[in-house]
């Protein structure tokens, strides 16, 4: 991206930031709560995107990382009264340690096998939280009455948005560096990356650590926003699919795409709620996802950039010179 392109992109980030900061002045508290969930989903989807969208290592066990962070801060605050400014960093660290567990199978497997191994991690933690030391984890009912970081819809909205916005910009900048390019190259042909003298192990470890840190931050803040954590809420397959669909629908490997996808998906589900109150609305969003992914594999981000290229706002990338 040249200087003009970078300037335009930063301007887009600034406009997005300003619009989102003004939102509490124009929408109801109820709508704001919808956007809080969208912010958290965007963080989860970006975290997934760094591993799976960027390096091509498809993770089906991302809630494992979120759950490790969520349970760490929940147990520390619930049982030991550890203040949030200590429990949340501890949760992020725990998620990063969990990220290294994810990384070990990535040294030997990829594709379907890697996806299944990560799914097994999630299922394992799902089982463990329910049966091992239920007094500590809260068992199947989980832990509730957790302290919140801030109270009220507006402060929670600003907190979730500002953290999501900061994570988005940092990740977006990372993928614009040569490390980001190398991570994309791993997705396309890992052996070719090795043959150019790049240490793919270190690069993947970096991606996994960044992803785990983001999942840790988002997971810890999420449980304190909800005020509770339960195995079904975190490790349910619907939660995993919502993260995956948000990233894929928005545009995998782009960082901005998962943000767009998260907002689109959350708003779509809320828009459908008055008409289809039950879980049947997931069928509608599944259909929308299917159609979009079939006709626009680069996701909503691809559609938006295509439109912006057509109207001349941005220059086409990868065009024939």
């Amino acid at each position: 991206m040249d200087r003009t392109g970078l300037g335009k992109a930063l301007a887009c980030w600034a406009v997005f930031g300003i619009v989102m900061c003004l939102l509490p002045f124009v929408v109801t508290t109820g709508t704001l709560r919808v956007f809080i969930f969208a912010n958290f989903l965007a963080m989860f989807a970006m975290s997934w995107d760094i591993i799976s969208g960027r390096t091509g290592y498809i993770s089906f066990g991302h809630p494992f990382l979120i759950g490790v962070a969520g349970y760490t801060t929940a147990m520390l605050t619930y049982h030991l009264d550890v203040p949030l400014f200590l429990s949340i960093p501890a949760a992020v660290l725990a998620a990063m340690v969990a990220g290294t567990l994810f990384f070990v199978p990535a040294l030997r497997t990829r594709g379907t096998y890697f996806a299944l191994v990560t799914l097994a991690f999630m299922e394992l933690l799902y089982g463990l939280t329910q049966v091992v030391q239920p007094k500590i984890t809260g068992g199947t009912r989980g832990l509730s009455g957790l302290p919140s970081v801030v109270s009220g819809a507006v402060p929670n909205y600003y907190l979730s948005f500002l953290v999501m916005f900061a994570i988005g910009i940092v990740l977006w900048l990372i993928v614009r560096t040569r490390i980001g390019t190398a991570l994309s190259a791993i997705r396309m042909d890992e052996d070719a990356v090795k043959s150019t003298g790049l240490n793919t192990t270190k690069l993947k470890l970096f991606a996994f650590m960044v992803s785990a840190a983001v999942a840790g931050i988002a997971g810890a803040l999420y449980v304190h926003y909800l005020g509770s954590i339960a195995p079904r809420g975190i490790f349910e397959i619907n939660f995993l699919f919502t993260i995956l669909v948000a990233a894929l629908l928005g545009g995998p490997g782009t960082i901005i795409g998962p943000i767009i996808g998260a907002f689109f998906l959350t708003c779509l589900l809320e828009f459908l709620r008055p008409y289809i109150p039950g879980t049947e609305r997931y069928l509608i969003y599944g259909l929308v996802a299917l159609v979009l992914y079939y006709y626009a594999p680069k996701g909503l981000y691809g559609i938006i950039t295509w439109v912006l290229e057509r109207v001349g706002v941005i220059k086409p990338e990868g065009a024939k010179a």
């Binding site: 390019t181 994309s184 043959s195 990868g318």
Partner: peptide
């Protein structure tokens, strides 16, 4: 330096980006 059979290029990257991936060392 190694130029593998059929190139093993990164298909959705431009020429310059492909070359720069080789430039890390």
């Amino acid at each position: 330096g190694y130029a593998p059979e059929r190139g093993n290029l990164f298909p959705f990257m431009g020429v310059r980006e492909n070359l720069l991936v080789g430039a890390y060392n």
